[in-house]
Amino acid sequence: MKSLKSLAVVLMLAAPLANAEVVIIAHPNGVSGLTEGDVRSIYLNRSGKATPIEMAQGMSERRDFHDWITGRSESQLQSFWSQQTFTGEGEPPEEASSPSAMKSIIANDPDAIGYVSPQDVDDSVKVILSP
């Protein structure tokens, strides 16, 4: 009985996590027509089509984004970017501290792309890719 109860609690906690997702956003007059592969290239320093903006470490959007697009864990990303930095290949993307900071950066830079939860999307940005 007790285990059933805790199972129910786990399911309740897990449900919103399973539904959590992000959408890729850009400036209203900015980049568009990107595929998941394009976005992955842009975020893993293999393409200069757009300037990627990340959410800060520990934000749930960041985890959702990488689960969807790159499949890399936080420590794999850290390892990847340290390798890029110390071999002169590139620097990690600029980070936004909140969804509104993310939108503000995107809304002011036609070259930038970022990601937010669908409920955070407003007129200042456009959605260019959804899962």
Binding site: S82, T85, E94, S100, S104, I105, A107, N108
Partner: peptide, 22 residues
Amino acid sequence: RVDSLQQDLRAAGEQRVTFNGF
């Protein structure tokens, strides 16, 4: 206003010198 401050901060954050270590 917060947005424009954010932009100011972003412009100020574009450093010309970066240091990293290992």
